[in-house]
Amino acid sequence: MEFFQNKYFLIALTFLVFLASKQLQRRTGIALLHPILVTITVLIVVLLAADVSPDVYSEGGEYIEFWLKPAVVALGVPLYRQLESIRKQLLPLLLSELAGCVAGIISVVLVAQLFGASREVVLSLAPKAVTTPIAMEISATAGGLPALTAAVVVCTGIFGGMAGFQMIRISRIRSQIAGGLSVGTASHAVGTAAAIERYGMRYGAFSSLGLTLNGLFTALLTPLILSLLL
């Protein structure tokens, strides 16, 4: 169907499918029906059925993706609202971020190798915990596949937003600050959005701090860790 190639149609379709997915989760209350996950799945099925290539989709999709960067800038506002409590505990924040970042990169590389991933895939997975623009850049520099990285990053975010809060409980993390920080560190902006929806802006502020610090540390440390491990 030729009309399916129209970029305004594709943008409208993305909005409508997302709205419907949100309704679906509100009505059913099933956590697995995560709106982003459902939207992506439905869109892929529609695109495959209508024989629309991913390149044609991104002609419309890029206008939505465009807002990712200003939205990351906007995270400066919740960050500002928590600056006082951040200043009071700068050292614990930096230490825990550094530990989480290093543990994250090493674990994803080792587990992927253990299960027989190819070198290309390992390199694409290494920066998977941080937000797409950062992760794709790291992946490209390291010799990975940026498209695969983007997909894994989105899945990591959805997974962290869905299962992250149970993981926090299992790992006996009790303080709100530590919880927010770990969700942001492990699952970037998608996890942060889930955290805000669930626990409010204060939790979200520490989550956005986690994604910021991990983004910086991951950008700086991934090349070094990869050269030591591979």
């Binding site: 993305t14 997302f18 709106p35 982003i36 939207t39 992506i40 869109l43 892929i44 695109l47 495959l48 991913p54 989709y57 991104s58 999709g61 890029e62 939505i64 993706e65 807002w67 990712l68 200003p70 939205a71 906007a74 995270l75 506002v77 919740p78 797409t132 596949l145 498209a147 695969l148 983007a150 997909a151 990053v153 989105v154 899945c155 975010g157 937003g161 902006a189 998608v190 942060t192 959005a193 889930a194 805000i196 979200g204």
Partner: peptide, 19 residues
């Protein structure tokens, strides 16, 4: 923007089709 952050990730997720 912060409240709707997840929506802006949808196109990157659809990009999974490429791989």
């Amino acid at each position: 923007l912060v409240r709707n952050l997840g929506f802006f990730f949808v196109p990157a997720g659809v990009g999974v089709m490429r791989c």
